[in-house]
């Protein structure tokens, strides 16, 4: 199995073998991160541009470090400080970056399809760092990597994804990745944030968290995305916590070795009671470390993919 894609846009179109190739490559990079010299020369002399049209700290820093650990040169651009302010289109900005010999463009954008749009128009390798409510493929890879690392396999594991599913690109990418590797996924949330049509993706849809907690091997809590909600999806935060927050009380109903995950940033006291986020079951910070290894793997793999949109 070799990686042949120029870009890394989504999980939906990836095969199980491609996903496993990314995970195996990430495992090698994780070893590199444990060494005194955390850098390898794979992308020496290459330029990576982080084009973040939507704010992000974790993902941007993670991609910056990943590129630096591969010896690439890296620049990050935020919307506020770029020519978007002057009305330049996304395509023109990207073409200019390519004209400056950027071989890799990592894009975060509020519009679904933005990464695909650039990938079809540029020779540069395009990596999706989150496009609207569509996908966040590197997050799914790091979630999958973290579970596989802890549990050995995804096959037959029961994974809950709890909270704001409707607006969550993380949920969509996670669902594709986890189900392709044989996990049983159940989505949990209020009907306003979890429409029935998610069942078409081959997952369970449940509105009562307490009924499924005891069977869960992994609980992945999603952040309530106030910025994407135009109207209130639930009456009050207090109400949400009462029904869907992972509290001490609820934690007692879980398997003793249940894994608690969160893509960050955490709203402490909302999705999860504060001290649970720091307990031994929580892998939230391991997810961040694994994110670095996964992003190194993705940059490394696409660098070998054929340029020109050939698959």
């Amino acid at each position: 199995m070799k990686w042949t894609r120029k870009d890394f846009i989504d999980i939906q179109s990836l095969s199980r073998e491609e996903i496993e190739l990314v995970l195996d490559t990430a495992a090698s990079f994780k070893k590199v991160l444990e060494r005194p010299i955390k850098k390898v020369p794979s992308l020496r002399g290459k330029t990576v541009v982080n084009l973040f049209i939507e704010p992000s700290t974790r993902t941007r820093v993670s991609f910056e470090l990943a590129a630096q650990n591969l010896s690439a040169d890296v620049i990050s651009m935020a919307a506020e400080s770029s020519s978007f302010k002057k009305g330049e289109t996304l395509k023109d900005t990207a073409l200019n970056l390519q004209a400056l010999n950027a071989e890799f463009i990592v894009i975060r954008h509020s519009a679904a399809g933005a990464a695909q749009f650039l990938a079809e128009r540029l020779n540069a390798h395009v990596i999706n760092a989150g496009d609207g409510a569509h996908e966040h493929p590197t997050q799914a890879m790091l979630d999958t990597f973290t579970i596989r690392e802890k549990l050995g396999t995804l096959e037959g594991k029961h994974i809950l994804i709890v909270g704001d599913i409707l607006y969550s690109r993380v949920a969509r990418s996670d669902i594709w990745s986890l189900t392709k590797l044989g996990a049983k996924v159940t989505l949990v949330g209020p009907t306003t944030l979890l429409p029935e049509h998610f069942r078409d993706m081959g997952v369970g849809v449940v509105h009562d968290l307490d009924s499924v907690l005891p069977q869960a091997d992994v609980i992945n809590l999603l952040r309530i995305q106030h910025e994407r909600q135009s109207k209130a999806a639930f009456p009050s935060l207090g109400e949400y916590i009462g029904v869907y927050g992972l509290t001490r009380e609820r934690f007692k109903k879980c398997k003793p070795d249940v894994m608690i995950m969160h893509p960050g940033p955490i709203n402490r006291g909302v999705e999860i009671e504060s001290d649970l986020a720091d307990c031994g079951n929580s892998v939230i910070l391991q997810q961040v470390t694994n994110g670095l290894a996964v992003r190194m793997a993705v940059l490394y793999l696409v660098s070998g993919g054929a340029v020109g949109g050939v698959e």
């Binding site: 042949t4 490559t25 495992a27 070893k31 590199v32 070998g304």
Partner: peptide
């Protein structure tokens, strides 16, 4: 020792690297 990340033929299709241990 896996040498994938130190090879001088980057830009070719990549197989999965092995673990360095």
């Amino acid at each position: 020792l896996d040498i994938s990340f130190h090879r001088d033929d980057i830009g070719r299709a990549k197989p999965a690297p092995k673990i360095t241990d």
